[in-house]
C-alpha cells in the first residue's frame, strides 16, 4: 500500500512537470543534467547562468518523496534506500548552491557589475533572485565594513575588484561535434581544434566558456 502511494505520487509529479515543460525530459535525465550543472559550476572560474528550474524540480521531488517516506514502516528495508537516494540528491543540490554562494562571496563586486551590464543589454541574469539579493547585501556590508575600518587610515581609497581568472585551465567532455575552437596559447599564433562527441580535453576556459553555457560541452 505504502509503495503504491509513493509510486502514484511520483507519477503525479512527473505528469505535472510534463505539463509545465514543453520539452519532455525524464527524471533520470534531470538528475544527469543536475550532475553536469554541478560539475560545470564546480570547475568554471566564473559564475554560470543559474539552473534554478532544475534545482526546484528536484527539490519538489525530494519533498514529496520525504513526506511519503514518513508513512513507510520503519522496518522496511526500502526506507533506507529511499532515504539514501534523497540524501544523495540533497548533497548534489546543496553542493551546487554552496559553490555558487562561494563564488558570489569572492567575486561579488565583479559579478554585480556584470549583472548590471546584462540587465542593461536585456540579457537574462545569471543569478537567481535570491542570489542577487544575497550578493547585494553581501557587497554592501563588505563595503560598509571596509569604510569603517578605513576611517582609521585615511588616504587609502583605491580598491581593486577581484574578478575570476577566465584563462584558467579546465577539463571538459564534449557532447557534440564542434569545429574550430581557438586555443589561446599566450602567443599570437593561435591554433584551431575540432572536438568530436565524447572527446575529453584540457583547455583554457576562455576558449570554451560559451560552449559550457549553451551546454555543448560539460566540465569534468
Amino acid at each position: 500500500m505504502d509503495e503504491i502511494d509513493i509510486e502514484s505520487a511520483l507519477n503525479e509529479i512527473e505528469n505535472e512537470s510534463d505539463d509545465e515543460d514543453e520539452v519532455q525530459i525524464s527524471l533520470p535525465e534531470i538528475i544527469q543534467l543536475m550532475e553536469e550543472t554541478w560539475l560545470n559550476e564546480k570547475f568554471s572560474p566564473e559564475i554560470l547562468p543559474n539552473k534554478m528550474e532544475i534545482v526546484e524540480l528536484l527539490l519538489d521531488q525530494i519533498t514529496t518523496l520525504e513526506t511519503n517516506l514518513k508513512k513507510l514502516n520503519n522496518s522496511d528495508f526500502k526506507k533506507g534506500l529511499y532515504q539514501m537516494e534523497v540524501d544523495r540528491l540533497r548533497f548534489l543540490i546543496s553542493s551546487y548552491l554552496r559553490k555558487r554562494l562561494e563564488k558570489i562571496e569572492i567575486f561579488c563586486t565583479a559579478i554585480l557589475e556584470q549583472e548590471k551590464l546584462r540587465s542593461q543589454q536585456g540579457k537574462d541574469n545569471y543569478l537567481s533572485q535570491n542570489e542577487l539579493q544575497f550578493a547585494q547585501e553581501y557587497d554592501q556590508s563588505i563595503k560598509d565594513n571596509f569604510e569603517s575600518v578605513m576611517r582609521f587610515c585615511p588616504g587609502i581609497i583605491e580598491t581593486q575588484i577581484i574578478s575570476p581568472n577566465i584563462h584558467s585551465m579546465v577539463f571538459l567532455k564534449s557532447k557534440e561535434n564542434i569545429d574550430g575552437i581557438v586555443i589561446d596559447d599566450g602567443n599570437d599564433d593561435n591554433d584551431l581544434i575540432d572536438l568530436t562527441t565524447g572527446a575529453q580535453v584540457l583547455i583554457g576556459y576562455k576558449s570554451i566558456s560559451n560552449l559550457v553555457k549553451n551546454g555543448d560541452v560539460h566540465l569534468i
Partner: peptide, 26 residues
C-alpha cells in the same frame, strides 16, 4: 602547451592531476 587531449583518462585519473597541472599551465 596550452591544450591536451585526455581522451581515455578516467575521472579519478583526471582528478589526481587537477591540483597540479592546470595551475602550472595557468
Amino acid at each position: 602547451a596550452m591544450y591536451a587531449a585526455v581522451d581515455n583518462l578516467t575521472l579519478m585519473e583526471i582528478n589526481s592531476i587537477r591540483p597540479l597541472l592546470p595551475h602550472a599551465l595557468e
